[in-house]
């Protein structure tokens, strides 16, 4: 006949799955559950816990893909190509925008200075030309 203390020890160790209990103790454990309310309560509680724990599914893994990856590493010495995740850094979001702004400023500056130079080149007062080089409308140098 099983004592409640022994029953408690087995419940604490193996839970309600009697197939895990020592084979020669199973019958006396079942008898104790039948006649002792406390043992019955303990067993029901352990059964509930086991059911909850068994319910939890194992995270799923694609075995064939993993096997392929392992074999690839063995054959080629490195991991199968997996795309690297894009770094989640807000600074990276501003790079294209910043590039566009810099390009726009540079474009404006180049255009502005080119315009000034052209203006100066077309003016007779331009320091680039001496009075001697000014060409008259008739095409002769004055």
């Amino acid at each position: 006949m099983m004592k409640i203390s022994d029953f408690q020890k087995y419940i604490a160790l193996h839970g309600a799955d009697l197939s895990c209990w020592p084979r020669h103790e199973i019958r006396s454990a079942l008898e104790l559950i039948q006649r002792d309310a406390e043992a019955g309560k303990m067993f029901a509680s352990a059964e509930k816990l086991d059911q909850m724990l068994r319910h939890c599914p194992v995270p799923s893994v694609n075995l064939q893909t993993l096997a392929d990856k392992i074999m690839h590493r063995v054959k080629y010495g490195k991991s199968a190509a997996t795309p690297k995740p894009v770094p989640v850094n807000p600074a990276y979001y501003f790079v294209p925008g910043g590039g566009l702004i810099v390009a726009a400023i540079l474009g404006f500056m180049i255009g502005f200075f080119n315009m000034q130079t052209t203006k100066e080149a077309l003016t007779f007062d331009s320091p680039l030309y001496t009075q001697d080089q000014v060409i008259s409308d008739s095409g002769e140098a004055s």
Partner: peptide, 17 residues
């Protein structure tokens, strides 16, 4: 280890018991 694990799980999952 098993006894402590079971006790901890029981306390977390079935606290009312």
């Amino acid at each position: 280890l098993l006894v402590r694990a079971r006790k901890a799980l029981h306390d977390k999952l079935l606290p009312e018991k």
